[in-house]
Design a protein around this nucleic acid. Sequence first.
DNA 1: ACCATTTTGTCGGCTAGATGACTGTTTTAT
DNA 2: ATAAAACAGTCATCTAGCCGACAAAATGGT
Lengths: 232, 232
Amino acid sequence: MYWGDDRMSDKQVSSPPDPMKEKGHHEQLLLAELFEEYGVLLHYKKNEFIFREDEESKHIYFLKSGLIKISQSAEEGHGITLFLRSAGEIFGAAEVLTGQRRQRFGRCILNSQVLLVPADHFKSLVLSRPDVLYALTVSNARRLLSTQRYVETLISRPVAWRLAHFLSQIGEWQQSEIHVKLPLSHEEMSYIIGCSRQTITETLNKWKEQGLIQYEKKQVIIYDYEDFMSKL
Amino acid sequence: MYWGDDRMSDKQVSSPPDPMKEKGHHEQLLLAELFEEYGVLLHYKKNEFIFREDEESKHIYFLKSGLIKISQSAEEGHGITLFLRSAGEIFGAAEVLTGQRRQRFGRCILNSQVLLVPADHFKSLVLSRPDVLYALTVSNARRLLSTQRYVETLISRPVAWRLAHFLSQIGEWQQSEIHVKLPLSHEEMSYIIGCSRQTITETLNKWKEQGLIQYEKKQVIIYDYEDFMSKL
DNA sequence: ACCATTTTGTCGGCTAGATGACTGTTTTAT
DNA sequence: ATAAAACAGTCATCTAGCCGACAAAATGGT
């Protein structure tokens, strides 16, 4: 969850220089090809919306570069972020498949290049290519498992654990250290972790005091992940 | 989530007499046909395990009758229940698709009839039938959306809301009233809602005192759902 | 370089819900 | 019918994390 579901979920890859290559899942390649062949390329700027809640679901998207977040409005208060998608990942397919309107917002966190395929072409396209359809099914199954695993962490893990886990996902591993260049504000992170903004701030600073991490302006280093996690 | 994801998610159906018919989603029918044709029928008794965590994922299952729960062990303490599956629903497909071992337990809550298709037949079977594969993809997409919606409720709704919502899902609607024959103990429900056993007991009794529901031995009636929800 | 906006840090008070400990009540198996 | 096991009610205590408020710092646009 949070960070793209399509990465290898447990094992960590040290530094992802070319995200298109690094994805690790064979099925991603097939999907990428499909979009490269039939998709139309659009550029979106940071903070721009790709789709909004309640809109008709007109396209399926493939993120070629950049970073986007999918979030839910949750009526009162601010929306929660359901997950991020990074380069090489499909998004916006589920509502198209089930024939519903958009149920959430898709918004760019960074400038992004997106390939789009119209919803009405998609079904016939994919029915004529069972291998691609199978790839899509596998990719969805992976996301389903990862979302369900996330449900479990929400119920059984405290905020600190979830934050630590999140950092380990977005960070780059250099031996036992994890280097994280935070692309997000504390507030933005709190929407992802599912807690208040202050709790993020306080947790990060507490860890710094305890000497578990180094933390200066959007730059975090976790010294020893195993050790770190064992101390909560 | 919780209760089978394949039901119409928002709109309620009043009383589901024949679950096989009631599912409402066209794709369920195709999948049902496939399993009826190629599946092997097994009977499981109440509390029997269908599969266990860490086992090889040898089959995909279709529940013909009964009720099963999928739960995660969560290391310490007791496992949380990720969801229930009722008659007419597929389960156990995700790990087979991604080629992983089982990540959770599948266990019968009631005596159940299950159709199973071996994992190694499944891929070729489904590649030769793109329409069935498409149906599976749609069904998975629906589950993905519903699981993501559940993530949102876990983050933004209190236990009372989640419990009320759960009851409304498993209950039968009779005009404005909802009649629920609880098939589960408070403890079992607490694993589903994601809270402690006592909180279930206390919430139910508080509602009874307030005259919002009738509640006697595994039998609940919510008098007016709209009104009820508005009072938390 | 400057002002406006956004982001962080910090604190005190507050509450939903966990936990543990017991008792009483149902259910189930023999 | 009865003993054992599972389930439900209740209470007292404890705490993670929320919320509001405000000051300090950083960032960005012109």
